[in-house]
Amino acid sequence: MNLISMRETSKAFIEDILKTAKKHEKTAREKKVLSTLDDKTLGILFFEPSTRTRLSFQAAMRRLGGESIGFNDAHFSSSAKGETLSDTIRVVEGYVDAIVLRHSVEGAAARAAEVTTLPVINAGDGANQHPTQALLDLYTIQKEKGKLEGLTVVLAGDLKYGRTVHSLMYALSHFGCTIQLHCPPSLKMPESIVEEVRQKTTVEEVTDFTQADVVYATRVQRERFADPEEYQKSLYVIDADVMATLKKDAMLMHPLPRVQEITPDVDLDPRAKYFEQTFYGVPVRMAILETLMEGKNP
C-alpha cells in the first residue's frame, strides 16, 4: 500500500511498475485522460518546495482522471504553526485517497505511513530516499538501452546527501548492474548502503566515465560545504570534452535541476537523455498511483 524506500521494495514490484508504466506511456505522450482514478483525490503534501516532482505527480493524477490537492511549502502549511506531521496527516486523511509526501526530515514518510491507513508515497525525505525518482530512472534506462541487466552505471556527484542516488543504488542492485561511484572524497556514498548493495552486485569507485553504459550525474550543492574552496574543488563538469570520452552508445542522465555539472552544449548530444527522463516521470508515476491506489503491495 505504500512506497517509502527502495531498500525494501521487491524486484517483482519494480518490474510490475515498469510494465504498467509502459502501458501508460502513450496516454502521457498524447496527453489523454483516462478514467482509472476518476473518483479519487490525491493529496500532494510538499513540506519542502519542488517544481518538477510535484508537477509530474499532478500530471500523472490528471491523466488517470483523478484530482489532486495539496501545498508546496512548509511556510504556508500548519507545520509552520508548530503542528506535528502526524496531525497534518490525520487531518488530510479525511480529504484524500492517497498521500504523496516530500519532507526535509528523514523518515517523515515512514512516520506518515504509520498514522494513516491511506497509501503513502515518499517523494523525498531529507537525504534518505526518493523511490519514485529511482523507478522513473530505471524506466528511462530500460527504455533507452533496451534492458537493465548487466549494465555499467556510473553515479556521479553528491552521493552522500543525494537521496536520488541512494534509491537508485538499491533499485539497480536487483538487475546485476555494475555500479561505479564517481564523487569528491567528502561526498561519498554512505558505507552502509555500499555494504548492503555489494552483497548483490559489484560496486566500485572510479575517476572517469569511460566504461559507462549510463552516466547518472547529480548536483553538488554549495550548502554541503563549510569551506568554499573545498566546494570549488569538488565541482565536476561534463562538457563536450568529457562526452568525447564516453562510449558511443552511452547515455547521460540527470534528475535536474542541473547547475554547472552539464554544460548546455551537451544538450544537443544524442546521448543526453535528461529531458526524456523527466517526461518518463509521468507514465511511471501513473503506474505508481494506479498500483498503490488500487491496493497492491510493494
Binding site: S5, S86, E114, P190, S192
Partner: peptide, 27 residues
C-alpha cells in the same frame, strides 16, 4: 523524524559488532 515526534525505533541488525538501523530514517 523521531527526534521531532513519535518514539524512536532502532532495529538491532547485528550484535557482533553491534549495529542498529533506524526504522524511520534507515541510518
Amino acid at each position: 523524524i523521531t527526534r521531532r515526534e513519535g518514539e524512536s525505533h532502532l532495529d538491532v541488525e547485528q550484535t557482533n559488532p553491534f549495529r542498529v538501523r533506524c526504522a524511520y530514517c534507515e541510518k
